[in-house]
Amino acid sequence: MLKINNLKASIEGNKILTGINLDVKPGEVHAIMGPNGSGKSTLSSVIAGREEYEVEDGTIDFDGESIMDLSPEERAHKGIFLSFQYPIEIPGVSVSNFLKTSLNESRKAQGLEPMPAGDLLKMMREKMELLEIKKGFLSRSLNQGFSGGEKKRNEIFQMAMLEPKLAILDETDSGLDIDALRIVANGVNKLKSKDNATVLITHYQRLLDYIVPDFVHVLYNGRIVKSGTKDLAHELEEKGYDWIIKEAEQL
């Protein structure tokens, strides 16, 4: 589904990604871990098409086609979803209007009619229940005055509504208390299917107790220096990143 080959990217002359290789297949959950500054968030931004980053080399294919020349919205229309580490506050745009616009723009790109208002509302209600979101939420301004937990729940709510093929969750666990983490993880797990895939970007192993990955990759200095199964995450939790960094530097 997602195939990244030797990806190198920089911002304002600083090389951040120095040769990423990643292959994500339908139904899989991948975790990308790594110390601060290793390039985790850059990787997610580059996949989602953020234009401030310059891709210097390599390829990103999605469903067998290159997405390198596509705008962020076109990538979203193809089914790529990025859950933000710091969701943006947008005063004056309500959650429901935002979702309606977002969903219908994606439908338009696929040649579909806008979703009838009744169906949309029904869908919103279902997904809200899944994420234990209260009723008044829809009419609030997007992310404005939301607590950290509400913002992350809102991200997963959007993901539930947009039903992406590939969800990249950037530090979704940061700033969450244990209840919110459980709700968010539960939401993500319920949305998993054999046809979609999830990439979890995380600093800590904690999230991986709730969303169990098939593969764990360690990112360091803009490259994946080690890949393994979920056991690797446990090892990192116990021993920290130093041993991997040492190993990587020896190579």
Partner: peptide, 10 residues
Amino acid sequence: FYLRSRGIPF
């Protein structure tokens, strides 16, 4: 970028 990543055109 946030809005565009949700499929909303530029």
